[in-house]
Amino acid sequence: MTSAAFVGYGTIVRKETVRIVRIWTQTILPSVISQTLYFAIFGGIVGARIGHMGGSSYTAFLVPGLVMMSAITNAFSNVASSFFGAKFQRSIEEILVSPMKPWAVLAGYVSGGLVRGVAVAAAVFLVSVAFVRPHVTHMGALIFFIFVTCLIFSLLGFLNGLLARKFDDVGLIPTFVLTPLTYLGGVFYDLNVLPPFWRAVSHANPIVYMIDGFRFGFTGTAVTSVLGSAGILVVVAGVLIVLTLALLRRGFGLKQ
């Protein structure tokens, strides 16, 4: 990395981080409040009647899923809204007329998504401590799966921002793709409780592997192959990086 590219990259990361902190009531707080309600209602009230799931109390079972759900939605929406906002206001032209290399631009915005995804995940995890004593079995798995998941959804958010033509396009993916896949990705239930057909269908959902791998970090047990999941996620992240960079280099959605 040349020093000029590093300065450009650092400028975008700093700008994104300042924005996340400045409007924390829009970027951090909503997820913390909604996940606190999930812990209180599903963990505390409903969970007491459910008993155990996946070998642990229902509240403890919920923790990895809810942390991951927050990380996914925040990493995605941070990059999608910030990048599309810059496109919409045309302030992205500040970067396009500069000598910044496309990879430095992508890395800057994606790092912003990582910062928000991990920050919100950490905040939600801290909230969970008020409801259940966390037990970490594999710290390496926790760090790997949260990082690679935020990376993938930051890249998807960037792609969404790049392809979007109007603000509605930025809201469509979270509503019609992310939320259903996340809710059906094993946040609230163990895949083993599903009938064989739906269990097989669930394995086509990429978020299942992210949540399962992250949950493995807490419980030490997984429904899927953790190493296999990790490998697939790394490949997915690699493909997304190549695809997004190719579009960015062509100026897709940015240049006339």
Partner: peptide, 10 residues
Amino acid sequence: IDAAGYYGIP
């Protein structure tokens, strides 16, 4: 200042 950053100026 941010515009300068895009040009590699610390």
